[in-house]
Design a protein around this nucleic acid. Sequence first.
DNA 1: AACCGCCCCAACCGCTTCAGA
DNA 2: GTCTGAAGCGGTTGGGGCGGT
Length: 298
Amino acid sequence: MGRQPCCDKAGVKKGPWTPEEDLILVSYIQQHGPGNWRAFPTKTGLLRCSKSCRLRWTNYLRPGIKRGNFTENEEKMIIHLQALLGNRWAAIASYLPERTDNDIKNYWNTHLKKKLKKLQGNEGSSRYGFSSSSSSYQICRGQWERKLQTDIHMAKKDLSDALSPEKSSDHTSYPKPSGYASSTENIAKLLKGWMRNNPWKMADSTDYSEEGTDPMKEDKNSKEMAEAFQSHLGFESLDSSLSDISPSMSPEASHSQYESKQHVNAQSQLSMLEKWLFDEGKDYQLCDNILDQNVLFF
DNA sequence: AACCGCCCCAACCGCTTCAGA
DNA sequence: GTCTGAAGCGGTTGGGGCGGT
């Protein structure tokens, strides 16, 4: 007696996704939006289990995913956040909206772990490190986690308020501004790769997965976390910067302006976050600051 | 050129959490 | 409050790529 498999094992395809499957998935999501993954395989005719579809979308096809090498700043953020949050890759990924939790997890396991080990070997105690056995660190971490939960809860509430019909000004026909339009870019990429690696030699086609540099799109998590940070660090509202997009613009133009606004804004917020995280020699001060700022919540 | 071993990362598995009935 | 199905998450795996011999 075990748990029921998420899908019928028989007739379910496993292994790497083909460009055709990606196309089907992306075009379906572009039309209907993500969600109801359970019904995905039947509605699209894909011989994949629902989990596989969701994973493929969130880790690979979703707009706004940056692939390729991690920057030094990203590395440092991951190291700091991992020290604070532990192996909560989804939480860490929410601070790096262009990276997926899977990406970050892989990068941590393959690169950063070794790097840190090396560093710790060289320096005795890591410059990044709170020693995780330190009791003050443990206390700090516990409070940070509670803060994070509060943040997420508040952000969710804000988000649902913002999305309620009477309050929202409706940037998009979908319930959240996740930039589905840019899925066309993904499709274009897919097609490009597909054409380059013509259908007769599909098996070796991985070009379509090459480093994409789509501007960051705001997904649910990033919005939540951006709002959470706004609420605590006093950042200017993300939405306010969107208000000057002219309603008379063509959808394409306004979308593109919307995206670039988001990009610039989110980037500036992230760079503030990065600055906050990277302040040399302030590991403990970081905790103190967090605690100071959140004293109201507890 | 062939083989081997290591590395990386996409994808899978199974447990946990969430949400609706 | 309980149950159940769906979604989310983190650990793990397997296969392809690549460098060394």
